[in-house]
Design a protein around this nucleic acid. Structure first.
Lengths: 227, 227
DNA sequence: TTATAGACGACTGTATGCAAAGTGCGATCC
DNA sequence: GGATCGCACTTTGCATACAGTCGTCTATAA
């Protein structure tokens, strides 16, 4: 059967020009996570615009999105301030993350075995190896991004996109908070990650849920450790 | 003890001038939930601006926030379209809501009894009565808002503000989807609500969690009912 | 010296303008 | 008659301009 376009299977929606607001959004989050913009900092639109070489408009749009995701607080007629997390809020956020990650893992374990799932599991193992390498090399930056990729992949397997998005947003904020108190090392518990993969592979929902929850709890302990 | 300002306990941060974008945001959500803007509808900034009597700027800002919360899809250089939920996505969202509401209820049940909690429980019962009245009067609009108030109050009791916010956002979207398929009646299961209150009051975490989950599951059944 | 009123400066909120990208329609050619 | 190319219109993306508000600093009076 001939089609108007050859190789239709390979053609994808192709990447439209990335809006400036998106780049600005990414840049600002990096600045916050990286610590250049400390909590409580007043983010003056004009300054940011000049520094990033754009007008105030994309800056504002990025800030609004960041407010919706909890990165900044927007006080009317005063502008944007980097969000200052209280201890109680960090606890709350960790609770939520535990909840979301556990459910994600449970759903992923519930997915019946298939060729697609096998491929995703293989990808998970691959990510694990990368993470371990980064951890051993004390490469914190890639360790973080690899960790994100790991959880994103599990969310992928689970098949619940809504849950995946929420987990992603919450996860990034947790990483930010975590980095503020322990900037020097990632929680390189890649063995736990492997255990989780196993639980997902064998389809043991309860175990997957439990392992994920325990894993998240460890972050809380690390956070509350006396420093 | 005399203070510079009398009645300090009553004074609150006071309401700063509400930005236009906020009003626009509320108005647009009402339009979507109310069905004036059907899913897939192209929301032209200029038209909305003229209809609401403001410039394009506040419209854009509201649209960006609405995208972050899943109300509209923003296609680059094409504009905003009212989000079209797929059946799979509705299921996903219902799963997430079940998860969030159940956890909220569990946390609320875990809060130790106190004068403050007693007052909140009383408020819950009050809301229940209002809801039942509205349901019996077939006043769907207030029934919905009362239902929202009910869940918001439980989230309040739970003390986890992060969870509360998430539950609120997800809950509103569920109500929208639900209303699209069953515009004529609310799910007036106020007896279940009362059962939930009881579980929270006696501090039975497991029961509270279970009741909340069951309650949410009923929504799913109603949604998938052949129509 | 302290408290208060006034004015100045800075920043946000809103509106408008301009250029580029996209879409749809019509003319044209096979 | 059908498909394709090109043009014009629509709409967004970004920039700029203006007005209102808030915070602060200073000068003045008690």
């Amino acid at each position: 059967m001939s089609q108007g376009v050859a190789m239709a299977a390979v053609i994808r929606p192709l990447q439209r020009p990335v809006p400036l607001r998106q780049s600005v959004y990414d840049a600002l989050i990096d600045l916050i996570v990286g610590g250049e913009l400390p909590p409580g900092q007043h983010m003056v639109e004009t300054d940011l615009a000049r520094q990033l070489g754009v007008s105030r408009q994309p800056i504002r749009e990025a800030l609004h999105r960041m407010e919706a995701e909890g990165w900044v607080d927007l006080r009317p007629s005063q502008g944007a301030f980097v969000h200052v997390p209280t201890d109680a809020e960090v606890d709350n956020l960790l609770d939520v993350r535990a909840l979301l990650e556990a459910e994600t893992a449970r759903l992923a374990a519930a997915v019946p075995a298939s060729a697609a799932k096998a491929a995703q599991l293989a990808r998970l193992r691959e990510i694990c190896t990368e993470g371990q390498d980064a951890a051993e090399a004390d490469d914190f930056t890639t360790a973080v991004s690899v960790n994100n990729a790991f959880h994103a992949e599990i969310a992928n397997i689970s098949g619940n996109t809504v849950l995946a998005e929420l987990a992603h947003i919450v996860g990034r904020r947790v990483q930010w908070y975590y980095r503020m108190v322990a900037p020097e090392r990632g929680h390189g518990s890649w063995d736990e990650h492997r255990e989780l993969i196993g639980a997902i592979e064998t389809g043991d929902r309860g175990l997957a849920q439990e392992v994920a929850r325990r894993h998240t709890e460890r972050t809380r302990e690390a956070y509350h450790q006396p420093r």
